[in-house]
Design a binder for these strands. Structure first.
Lengths: 150, 150
DNA sequence: CAGCGTTGGTTTAATAATGCAACCAATCTT
DNA sequence: AAGATTGGTTGCATTATTAAACCAACGCTG
């Protein structure tokens, strides 16, 4: 391999996102972080990932500003990995992935975990809407370039 | 590597989604498909991906039901890759990734492409809501297991 | 309708990414 | 203070990705 192509400078925001979290493990780590995992060992056990790879991924996620390394809440000298505000902004991505999986990747009779509103205990849902509130699908959208204001 | 772990049987829907589209190239291909690309050569040129890898990814995406191989609209014997209905259901994932990128991966002054409603030419937006319409963030949600109805 | 460029791949060899296991230092527990 | 746990690092084996060369089928041109 001659260095995997970097999308850092790509003009498309999705591409840049994928540049940061588009590899095999990162989003799984983020999912676990949303599930409340914080410690190296917890991620390692949950994912079954090789430790050296986990080390590297965590470093990258911290460097990208998605996770931060903070002293444990229990006060020890140990550290824990926590989602930053930026990391929490990945919530819609996780919900969208979850929704897709629920719809297409489970047998009708098959059991799966469910994301619910803490208050009502009812499933949350995700919508894409136009400014006037209309629901929007892929065929009702276009991609434009932001006109350069010069 | 000893065979990358498969998440096919995972209990978490996000994990299953990542199992299908979580590798480095697949979502970029899907993004291009949403942008209207259909031909092998178009993807190859757009992404700069090695041809054998593209071949393999396209095969996987077709096998997963995200793309389908149909005769060209121009009637020739050539084929083109099109998003299936299932593939189009990845739209929220793409929008979420885009939104994240827009918010966090561009300099304030930096130019980027924008997804707009075809009718109004205004940006679309993505919300996660509870059943009663309240906007919901990651801290207002919990993951539960669907109670087995037996 | 023969020749030739284009399209959509396959194959091969080199290199990068990943995995596993062994090791290790610092912490934490008792 | 001793042993176990945590959070890594290191080295080597294996897999994935790449670039480049090659190739067959299509389809356009004269």
């Amino acid at each position: 391999m001659v260095a995997r192509k970097s999308l850092k400078g790509d003009y498309c925001p999705s591409a840049r996102s994928l540049d940061v979290i588009g590899d095999w493990w990162s989003l799984l780590i983020v999912r676990d972080a949303f599930d409340g995992l914080t410690r190296f060992g917890e991620f390692q056990k949950s994912l079954g990932i090789a430790k050296n790879i986990l080390t590297e991924r965590l470093k990258t996620l911290v460097a990208s500003g998605i996770l931060e390394l903070v002293p444990t809440s229990e006060g020890g000298a140990r550290m824990e990995y926590r989602l930053t505000a930026m990391g929490k902004d990945l919530f819609p991505v996780m919900v969208a992935l979850r929704q897709f999986g629920e719809r297409h990747l489970f047998e009708p009779a098959e059991d799966h975990s469910l994301l619910v509103d803490r208050a009502s205990r009812q499933p949350v849902h995700l919508d894409i809407r136009a400014q006037d509130g209309r629901l929007i699908g892929p065929d009702e959208t276009v991609i434009v370039r932001i006109p350069d204001e010069k």
